[in-house]
Write a protein that binds this DNA or RNA. Structure first.
Lengths: 412, 412
DNA sequence: ATCCTTTTTGGGGATTTTCACAAAATGTTC
DNA sequence: GAACATTTTGTGAAAATCCCCAAAAAGGAT
C-alpha cells in the first residue's frame, strides 16, 4: 500500500482518458491533460464538479484563446515552460477559471503538454504536488507516442503542401485525393500566408511558431511548412466575412506575439489573394514572393502593405520605371514645378505630393505640411497654373502621382 | 492720252510699292496690295488719308486677324476667291474698316493676292472698277516672281524641318546654322503640332492650310511641312503664358475653321510637349505619333486629349494590359463586385467607375447615375465592404481605376 | 530704402458635404 | 402573401469646405 501510494501511476493504461481518471481518483479533483499547444488530450469524468473554463476547453477540444492569453500575461504559462514543478493558479472569474494547479510534462528539455488539476473543494497539499509530478512523469511516454504519430502526419502534409506550392500537382482529383489521405476537408476558399523572418528559422523558433499557430483559434490553418526564413501557411478563408481584414489582423497578432513572447522581431507577413482553386496555389505563392521583392525595393512606402492587392501602384512600379527610362520621358508639369521651386525656393512639388498622398484632402494635407489650409489652397491654385494641372481630372492626377513617386525613387 | 487712260498700268516698275503708288495716283485713293495670305506686299504713300484697319495692316505687315475673320463671315473673302471682279465692302466701324473696294489677283485658277482701294472721299466709278481690274492683271507677274522666291525658301525650310523631325541633325551648331541660313531666329522653346486629316492632303487643301496658318496670328509658326495626311508644324512656345492652353485653343480653332470654311472635317490635332532643345525634335515628333497610335485604340476615351501629357493613364495602358495578361492577374475587389452584381443584379461596378471618373465627387457621380446622393453613399459603403476597398487610399483607388478601364477595354 | 510682387494667414459667411436616422420601396425566401 | 433583408430616398443638423477679402509677412528688384 505504501509503495502504491508512493507512486500510484506506475501501472499500465490503454488510453489517456483512463489515466486522467486515475489521477483524478488519486488527487480527488477534476483533471485535464493538454498537449504543448493546449489541445485537449484527455479529461477525467469521475468528478462532475468543474468550472466554465474547463467546460469550454472540453467542448472545443482546446483551451479557449482568451484563457491562454490571460495565462501568458499573468505569467502562468511562462512559469510552466520554465520549471517541471507544479504551479498554482489563482481563480480568475472574468475568464471562468477557478483555483487550480498545473504542471508541465517534460521530455528532456522539451515540454510535451500539461496536466491541470482543479481545486474545487480542497487545496492540493505538498504531497499532492509530488503526486502530480509523478503523474506528469508517467504520462510522458504516452504523449511522446502521440507526438510521433502527429509528426508523421505533419511530414506527409508538408510534402503535399510543397507540391501544391511549386505547382507539381496539376490534376484536381489528385489534389482532392491527397487532402483525403491526410483526413483534411479542403475549404472552398483559401489563402497562402507567409511570414518572413529576419534569420533562418531555428527548430526552437519552430516550436514557438507551432505553439502560436495551434493556440490561435481565429484562423484555421490547413497546411503549413517552413522554408529557410519563411513560414508558409495555407489558411481557410471560408466563413470569414472580410477575409482581408481577418488575415491582416491575424498577421499582426502573430507578429506581435512572436515579438512579445519570444523576442523575435521584424517578421514580415504577406498574404495572397483569396483562391478557390487549389491548382493555383503556386500562383498565390509566387504572388507573395513578388510582394516581398517589391517590399524590398520600397520598404518605407510599402511597410504597411501585406498583400499584392494593396500594393496599389507599386505593383506596376518597375514596369513604368523602365518605360519612362526608355522613352526619356519628362513630366512637363513636374518639370515646371521643379523649376519654379528652384527659382523661388518654394516647395510646390512637395506640396503636391502630400496633397495627393492625402487623397486630395486639403485639411489633412495642410496639417502634414504645417501650413494654413488657405495657404495650401493658394499653392494648389499656383500648381495648377504653373504645371497646367487640372485637379478635377483623375487621369492627370494619376500620372502626376506616379511620376512623382518615380522621380522620388530615382532621386534617392 | 486716250490709250494711256485705257491702260495706265502697262509700264515697267521696279518695286511693288512704286506700283501701289501708281494705282493710288490713277484712282485717287489709298491702295494696299496683299498676297494670298493677307500679308502686306505694298502700300501707297501718296495719299495720307486712311482708316484704322489699314494702319494696323501696315504696322503689322499683315491684315489683322479679326478683320480677316470678319471678312470671311460677312462674305467678302469667299466672294473674292470666287471671282476676278472688284468687290465693294461696306464700312465696318467696329473693326475700323471704312468703305473700300477689293479685287483678287489671279494666275490661272489660283489667287495670288489682293488689291485694296479705300474709298475715303469718293466712291469708285464703273470705270475705276475696270481700271482696278487692269491693275490686278498688270501686277500678276510680279506676284508670281515673289511667290516663286518664297516657294524656294519654303522648300529648303521643309527639307530642314524633315531633317529635324527624323533626327538627322545631331549637332547643335549645325541646327543653328540652318536656321540662320533660312533667316529664322529659332525660339528658345517650341512645340511640334500635327494635324492628322482623314485623307491624304491634296494640293488644294494645302492652299487652304497655308492660308489659315498664315492668317492666324496667335501662333508663331516657325516651320511646317506636309506628309501624306499629316500637317506638321513647329511652333514657337516662347512668350506664351500657358503654352498648353494656347496650343489647345489654336488647334481647336484650326480644326473649326477648316471645317467651317472648307468643309474639311474630322481633323485630329496632337501636339508635343514644350521643347527647348532642337536636337530633341524627333523625340517630340515620335511622342506625337505615339499619341495618334493610342488615340486609335481608345478613340472614345481620348477624344478630347491632344497631348501626351494629358493622355494620363492611357500612356501606360498597353504596358499594363500586357503585364496583367502575363500574370493572369485578377483584381479581387472587382471580382467580388462583379459577383455581387451578378447575383443581385445591382451595378456596383458601374457605380464605382462613375464615381472614380468624377474624381470622387459624390454629387457629380450621383447626377450621372441618376440616383440620390445618399444612394451613392450607401453603395460606396457597400463597395468598400464587399470589395475591401479603402476609399481614402489613393494607391488602391488608382489600381482599381486602372483595372476597371482595362477590364472595360478587354470586355469590348 | 522703397516699391513691388508673391506668399501666408486669418476671419467670416455661403455653400457643400457628411452622417445618422427613418420611412418607403424593392427584392427574396419560404 | 408574410416575413425578412436589402436598397433607395428623404430630412435635418453638424461638420467641413469653399470663397472672398484683407492684412501681414516675405522676397526681389531697382
Amino acid at each position: 500500500m505504501n509503495t502504491r501510494l508512493h507512486d500510484p501511476f506506475k501501472t499500465a493504461f490503454d488510453s489517456l482518458d483512463e489515466f486522467a481518471d486515475l489521477i483524478s481518483q488519486v488527487l480527488k479533483c477534476p483533471i485535464t491533460i493538454e498537449d504543448a499547444n493546449h489541445r485537449l488530450l484527455a479529461y477525467s469524468t469521475h468528478d462532475e464538479r468543474t468550472d466554465p473554463a474547463r467546460i469550454s476547453t472540453i467542448i472545443g477540444r482546446r483551451v479557449p484563446e482568451k484563457v491562454i492569453n490571460q495565462l501568458w500575461k499573468e505569467g502562468t504559462i511562462p512559469a510552466l515552460l520554465n520549471t517541471n514543478e507544479p504551479i498554482r493558479v489563482k481563480s480568475m472569474n472574468d475568464i471562468g477559471l477557478s483555483n487550480r494547479v498545473a504542471i508541465s510534462i517534460w521530455k528532456q528539455d522539451e515540454v510535451l503538454g500539461f496536466i491541470w488539476a482543479i481545486e474545487i473543494d480542497k487545496f492540493l497539499s505538498v504531497e499532492d504536488f509530488s503526486l502530480l509530478k509523478k503523474a506528469a512523469d508517467a504520462v510522458k511516454n504516452k504523449l511522446l507516442q502521440l507526438q510521433t504519430r502527429k509528426n508523421k502526419k505533419e511530414e506527409s502534409s508538408q510534402e503535399f503542401f510543397w507540391k501544391l506550392l511549386t505547382g507539381h500537382l496539376k490534376a484536381k482529383d489528385e489534389i482532392i485525393k491527397h487532402f483525403h489521405t491526410l483526413q483534411i476537408t479542403p475549404p472552398t476558399s483559401f489563402a497562402i500566408l507567409v511570414f518572413q523572418f529576419q534569420e533562418n528559422i531555428t527548430s526552437k523558433e519552430e516550436h514557438y511558431i507551432s505553439y502560436l499557430l495551434n493556440t490561435d483559434q481565429r484562423m484555421k490553418i490547413i497546411l503549413y511548412t517552413i522554408d529557410c526564413n519563411q513560414l508558409i501557411l495555407l489558411v481557410s478563408a471560408t466563413g470569414l466575412e472580410n477575409p482581408f481584414d481577418e488575415l491582416d489582423h491575424f498577421a499582426r497578432v502573430f507578429v506581435l506575439k512572436m515579438s512579445e513572447r519570444y523576442r523575435i522581431k521584424d517578421i514580415n507577413p504577406v498574404y495572397s489573394s483569396i483562391c478557390e482553386d487549389y491548382q493555383k496555389t503556386n500562383k498565390a505563392y509566387e504572388e507573395i514572393l513578388e510582394v516581398f521583392s517589391i517590399k524590398e525595393k520600397f520598404p518605407l512606402e510599402t511597410k504597411d502593405i501585406f498583400n499584392y492587392q494593396k500594393l496599389g501602384i507599386y505593383q506596376l512600379f518597375d514596369l513604368i520605371l523602365e518605360k519612362r527610362r526608355n522613352e526619356e520621358y519628362e513630366n512637363y508639369s513636374l518639370k515646371r514645378l521643379h523649376e519654379y521651386d528652384g527659382k523661388h525656393n518654394s516647395n510646390l512639388v512637395e506640396t503636391l505630393e502630400v496633397f495627393l498622398n492625402k487623397d486630395n484632402n486639403i485639411n489633412d494635407a495642410a496639417k502634414e505640411l504645417n501650413v494654413h489650409a488657405n495657404t495650401l489652397n493658394y499653392r494648389l491654385k499656383r500648381i495648377s497654373e504653373i504645371g497646367a494641372v487640372n485637379f478635377k481630372d483623375p487621369n492627370q492626377k494619376i500620372i502626376l502621382y506616379l511620376d512623382l513617386k518615380l522621380a522620388k525613387y530615382q532621386g534617392i
